[in-house]
Simulated scan of single mutants.
Amino acid sequence: MAALVLLLVLALSSLLIGTGSSSPHDAWDYLVGDSAARADARLRLAVVGVRLPRTIAAVLVGACLGTAGCLLQAATRNPLAETGLLGVNSGAAFAVVLGLTFFGASSSAALLVWALTGGMAASGVVLLLAASGRAAGSPLRLVLAGSALGATFHGLTSYVLLGTQSTFDTYRYWTIGSLAGVRTAELVPLLPPAGVGLLAALCCARPLSALGLGDDGARSLGHHPGRVRLAVAATVSLLAGCAVAVAGPIAFLGLLAPYAARALTGARMAAQLVLSALIAADVMILADVLARIVIRPWETPVSVLLAFVGGPLLVWIARSSRLSTAGASA
């Protein structure tokens, strides 16, 4: 409940605070329906045209990454697992570069489509590779397939960028990771797939709880560990693809939010998923608000702020005595 209340407070703060000249007081007057404020076209653009889409995007990206990270860590029993393991980020990056270089994609909407398509295609290939062979669906096969494909896409992306300076300039801005420039029209098409992914994640809670007992224990309860992990990987791919399409690659969020949720909820998988989504959304909105005011009137990419916080926390987690047991609960 505290995480939900904090989310509402931060969402309101996101609507009130911006890099422009519109003050929080002016924005508040607009939100409460003041007639003079509502008649101000500049203020309406700032609140409804800029800050509202960014707030929705922050909630969407945070919830998707937090849920995806929680699923992946539980399925692989690895507390350091995050969405980049399935090749989503590298696939999205390669697709964006292809769209910029060979198909003339330049608008934010076009880049969103290319990023989502590339992320989903890459994770689809990872799933096909992980589903083949005798150890189909095993955590090791998923990680190896994702790492191999991610390295391949990274090399191809670098090769294409070497010969196209204009593409590199646009790609450099996208790959930093930011919510600047997000528009409502771009978010609406992503809401249904994100909603499907979040519902699918909740459906995976019970099988993942069974996996926490070990593969043999899960089989004794009627679950197929390989199929469960493949279903989780597909759900993670959908969620991470939506997040990357909106904000570009965002590091650490899908790793840290599940860790914090697990420390608060224990072994309750459904509670972990919900709390991971809320915590990640809270952190994402907070980082986006801070990004607007740290070097005002300019803006800091939100991923930079998350890296400053996430890097030291990751070191602390890696050194924690609880690391060995953090991924065992489901």
Rank of each mutant, 00 (worst) to 15 (best):
L6I: 03
L7Y: 02
V9K: 01
L10F: 10
A11Y: 01
S13L: 11
S13C: 09
T19Q: 07
P24C: 08
W28Q: 11
D29W: 10
D29R: 15
R44Y: 00
V47Q: 04
V48Q: 15
L60H: 01
L60E: 00
V61R: 08
A63F: 00
A63C: 04
C64L: 03
A68G: 11
L71R: 08
A75W: 12
A75M: 08
A75H: 12
N78V: 04
P79R: 07
A81Y: 06
E82K: 12
L85Y: 00
S90H: 11
A92C: 13
A92R: 05
F94L: 14
F94G: 04
L100R: 10
S106D: 12
S106T: 12
L111N: 13
V113K: 00
A115Y: 14
G118S: 12
G119Y: 01
G119I: 02
A122E: 14
S123D: 13
L127W: 07
A131R: 14
G133L: 05
G137V: 08
P139L: 02
S147I: 13
G150D: 04
T152D: 08
G155M: 11
T157L: 03
T157P: 05
T164A: 09
T167E: 04
Y173K: 06
W174R: 03
G181Q: 03
V182T: 04
V182K: 00
T184Q: 12
E186V: 07
V188D: 06
A194P: 01
A194D: 01
A200P: 05
A200L: 14
A201W: 06
R206I: 09
L208K: 12
L208A: 14
S209I: 10
G212F: 07
G212M: 04
G212Q: 07
A218H: 11
A218I: 09
A231R: 13
V232F: 07
T235N: 08
S237V: 13
V244R: 00
A251C: 03
L255I: 05
L256Q: 03
A260T: 02
A267K: 01
A270K: 14
L273V: 02
A287S: 09
V289T: 15
L290M: 02
L290F: 00
A291I: 01
R292L: 04
P297A: 10
P297R: 04
W298S: 10
E299G: 12
P301Y: 02
V302K: 02
V304H: 01
G311N: 04
R322V: 15
S329I: 05
A330I: 13
A330D: 15
